[in-house]
Design a binder for these strands. Structure first.
Length: 468
RNA sequence: GCCCGCGUAGCUCAACCUGGUAGAGCAGGGGACUCUUAAUCCCAAGGCUCAGGGUUCGAAUCCCUGCGCGGGCACCA
């Protein structure tokens, strides 16, 4: 920040700096060290319900929204995380000095106020102030009180203003937090152990994506930010933890889009003695639990399209879906390409797409009845992959061969082909129990449940280009 | 990386097509008002029109370049 003199500031900012100095000159500290509130706004309101004639004094704290100063009586809305409550100040009651200070507060100032709660003549529940304290002076004006903050760039860059001005934004991120809590509760209840695995990887495996590269100075070598959680979690199943999960950030060095942020949040969980059929049931349970946590009905809409999230979801084999769409019965990478092009975008209602070609699934177990396919599914909703899961490949010999096929693709220029992870193959050689595994994109799940069109609307601080 | 659109006061938007001194609401300042709630009414103030070039007597407006944002494509299990 350049050293700015008060004179150079826009008038709206200069006025507030001058107010700040005036307050200090009057002996009022504009940034309080601490404050004790007795009630949130919601608690104050429910207290009034129990004492409709008026409560004992309560102390609330929050940010001042709008003010309505009317001669010797002033009204203001105080906002905290739970909601809002009206404050009433009267010159007769507070005395002229304190009243004057109240009426010169700005929207955005953080204050604490004490007084009984009762209704105004118009029926508005209000804290009738016996006194108030300025806790944090706001030196910048709030966004337009009626239109909110519309500028989409400012909403992302200054998320704090978006959260103050737009209730919908608060709702989305509250729902996101509750969804993640619900997922943890569901998995914990099934005996899964939440673990943390490294973000810095020697070998960026578990998915097909270009990684971010970073450098460790003391080791004198490059490391990669993880693109998936998979390989470390399956090592833990080898280690006997049997049911593990991690909810964590992964990083993919790809372009930005309404559905892609370079860092995003994945749930991955692995269950010994389970297969991909079990993972389908688990997927359904996760979606239902998440929807309930977000307060989203199972009969919902996404961007104007009706979506029914009631399980069980349709199950269809990829070869059949492609044949229905194109009339051709394909195998191998061509099947997968045709699926992505002709089928996936049209799958609006929740659908488990089963049995992927082995060539695009180097970590999944082959089908016993047809080794060209693996026991893998993706749960697709609104044309987007929500879950990717499979019966894990446990045969270390086959795993090494699959890695070598990927290495050949890599040598041929496919930067996203899976690299060989020797240590992972060694872990398999010790014996991975039959295991089902599942990965779920939390951001896309929250987008679906909160009806948000862009992944940027469900990530608090999404990646943008450098500010001008 | 390519294509399209957008960028005006702290915020929300006019004026741009068709070039002629940049306007309004909110927020802020002053005043009136002791039951308001998008309070109301009166007064005054607030701008490097994203940046840089060009065309023109004259550019917010037309043209070019750059930057930023959005969308699409490419990329992306």
């Amino acid at each position: 920040m350049p050293p700015e003199t008060v004179d150079e500031l826009p008038a709206v900012l200069r006025d507030r700096r001058e107010k700040l100095e005036r307050l200090r000159a009057e002996g009022v500290e504009p940034f309080a060290a601490h404050f004790h509130r007795t009630h949130t706004t919601a608690e104050a309101l429910s207290l009034l319900d129990r004492h409709p004639e008026g409560t004992d004094p309560v102390t609330v704290a929050g940010r001042l929204a709008t003010q309505r100063v009317q001669g010797g009586m002033a009204f203001a809305d105080l906002v905290d995380r739970d909601g809002r409550i009206q404050l009433v100040a009267r010159r007769d009651h507070l005395g002229p000095d304190l009243y004057e200070r109240f009426s010169h507060l700005d929207p955005g100032d953080v204050i604490g106020g004490t007084g009984p709660v009762r209704r105004t003549r118009r029926g508005e529940p209000s804290v009738w102030l016996d006194g108030f304290v300025l806790l944090s002076k706001s030196l910048r004006p709030l966004p337009d009180k009626w239109h909110g903050l519309k500028d989409i760039e400012l909403r992302y860059r200054r998320r704090y203003l978006d959260l103050i001005a737009n209730p919908e934004t608060r709702h989305v991120f509250t729902a996101r937090a509750r969804v993640i809590t619900a997922i943890r509760q569901l998995l914990d209840g099934k005996g899964f152990l939440e673990v943390e695995t490294p973000v810095l990887h020697d070998v960026p495996g578990g998915g097909n994506a270009r990684p971010f590269v970073t450098h460790h100075n003391a080791l004198g070598r490059d490391l990669y930010l993880r693109i998936a959680l998979e390989l470390h979690l399956k090592r833990l199943v080898v280690g006997g933890l049997e049911r593990v999960y991690e909810i964590g950030r992964v990083f993919r060095n790809e372009g930005l889009s309404p559905r892609h942020n370079p860092e995003f949040t994945m749930l991955e969980c692995y269950q010994a003695y389970a297969d991909y059929h079990d993972m389908m049931e688990l997927s359904e349970q996760l979606v239902v639990a998440a929807a309930q946590a977000a307060g989203t009905p199972l009969e919902t809409t996404y961007q104007g399209t009706a979506i029914d999230l009631h399980p069980p979801y349709r199950r269809a084999r990829m070869v059949d879906l492609v044949e229905q769409a194109t009339g051709r019965r394909l195998v191998g990478p061509k099947l997968f390409e045709a699926y992505e092009e002709a089928v996936e975008p049209a799958l609006v209602q929740p659908t488990f797409v089963l049995d992927y070609p082995v060539e695009v699934s180097p970590l999944a177990r082959r089908r016993e009845d047809d080794p060209r396919f693996v026991e893998r599914f993706e749960l697709v909703v609104t044309g987007r992959e929500l879950v990717n899961a499979f019966t894990e490949l446990t045969d270390p010999i086959d795993q090494r061969r699959r890695f070598e096929e990927q290495a050949a693709q890599r040598a041929a220029g496919n930067l996203e082909a899976h690299p060989l992870d020797e240590d992972y193959v060694r872990a398999l050689e010790h014996g991975l129990p039959p295991t089902g595994g599942l990965g779920m994109g939390i951001d896309r799940l929250v987008m679906l449940l909160t009806d948000q069109a862009s992944i940027r609307d469900v990530i608090l601080f999404p990646q943008l280009k450098e500010e001008a």
